[in-house]
Amino acid sequence: MDPQTRAALPFVLFPWLCLCAMAAASAAWRSSHGLPVITGRPADAVFYQGWASARSRRNLFTLAFHANNCITVAVTPAMLVILPHFPFNLLFVPSISDLEHYVPRAAVRVSDVGWWMFRRWVRVKWIGEDGRQGVVDLALRDPDAFLATLGPSAATVSQN
C-alpha cells in the first residue's frame, strides 16, 4: 500500500466505524429495553401492513421526520402497533422521530381522513397511560380495512 493511501485510510474508515458502533449501540439499547430489532407481523394481528408511511405530529421537529414506506402498522385485539422496519429502527431514529408506538386499542381515535400528496392519510390520536397525547398520520394501502378493523369505537371526526 502506498503512503498516500495509508494516510487517507483513517479518514475513510473512521466515519464507517462510528456508524457501525452507533448501530450496534442502538441495537443493544433496543434489546435491553425489550424492543424488537427485527420487526415482523404480530401473531394475533387482525390488520397488518408492512410498508406504510407515517409522520408524527408531536411537534415541528418530529413532523420533519416523514417515514416513507418503512413503517409497520398492525392492529391486534388489544393494541395498535406502529413500528419502523429494520434498519430504519436503528441509530435511535424512532426515539427522535416519535414513530414507535404500542397503543391500547381502546384509546385509539381516528380524527381525520383525507388526501394529501396523492395519498390517503388517516390521522390517529390517542392519550397514553402517561397522559400525553399522541398524533400520527398514516398512509396505508387500504385505509378502509384499517378503519373497519378499529371499528366504531374509533369514530372518524371528519373526512376530506
Rank of each mutant, 00 (worst) to 15 (best):
S56V: 03
S56R: 03
S56Q: 03
S56N: 03
R57N: 13
R58F: 09
N59R: 07
N59F: 11
F61L: 12
T62Q: 06
T62K: 01
L63A: 15
L63P: 00
F65M: 08
H66M: 09
N68F: 08
N69H: 10
I71L: 06
I71C: 06
I71D: 04
T72C: 11
T72E: 15
V73F: 11
V75D: 07
V75W: 10
V75A: 04
V75P: 02
P77W: 01
P77G: 04
P77K: 05
A78G: 09
A78Y: 07
V81I: 14
I82R: 05
I82P: 00
I82H: 05
L83I: 02
L83R: 04
L83T: 00
L83Q: 06
P84I: 06
P84W: 06
F86V: 00
P87D: 06
P87M: 08
F88M: 02
F88I: 00
F88N: 01
N89K: 02
N89F: 01
N89D: 00
L91D: 04
L91A: 06
F92R: 03
F92L: 02
F92E: 02
V93S: 06
P94Q: 10
P94E: 09
P94L: 04
S95F: 11
I96E: 03
I96F: 08
I96C: 05
S97H: 05
D98I: 00
D98G: 01
D98H: 04
D98W: 03
L99M: 10
E100R: 15
E100P: 00
E100T: 03
H101G: 01
R105E: 05
A106Q: 14
A106H: 15
A106M: 09
A106K: 13
A107W: 11
R109G: 02
R109L: 14
V110C: 12
G114K: 10
W115V: 14
W115P: 03
W115M: 15
W115C: 12
W116S: 13
M117V: 13
M117D: 15
